[in-house]
């Protein structure tokens, strides 16, 4: 597979490490009353969609950036790649 890195251009997926669902960026509040339940949902439960999937890849053999990649789990087509830090900053701003 090829991941079109936002700043480095197309790179072989073998340069990257795959982590999983991009929702792992949405870490719950440790002080919430049901924090254990929230963390359980966050860490263990997955939508696991057959279709478009937002996932985290890490460019270990490259610039060490984390990316949010939108990829179809049936066709493997990649439709969007963003720097995870940018995504996280936008999320922080909007929340």
């Amino acid at each position: 597979m090829i991941i079109n890195h936002p700043t480095l251009g197309p790179r072989d997926a073998a340069e990257f490490v795959h982590l999983g669902d991009a929702t792992l960026m949405n870490r719950p509040d440790w002080q919430a009353e049901d924090a254990v339940e929230q963390f359980h949902e966050y860490l263990y439960q997955r939508d696991n969609p057959a279709g478009d999937y937002r996932e985290l890849w890490y460019h270990e053999q490259g610039d060490r950036s984390w990316l949010v990649v939108t990829r179809n789990t049936l066709t493997h087509e990649i439709t969007d790649v963003q720097m995870a830090r940018d995504v996280a900053m936008q999320q922080a701003k909007s929340s």
Partner: peptide
Amino acid sequence: DGYNTYAQRGNMP
């Protein structure tokens, strides 16, 4: 292969 997928095929690496 390491990435989530429902395709019954993998890649070269």
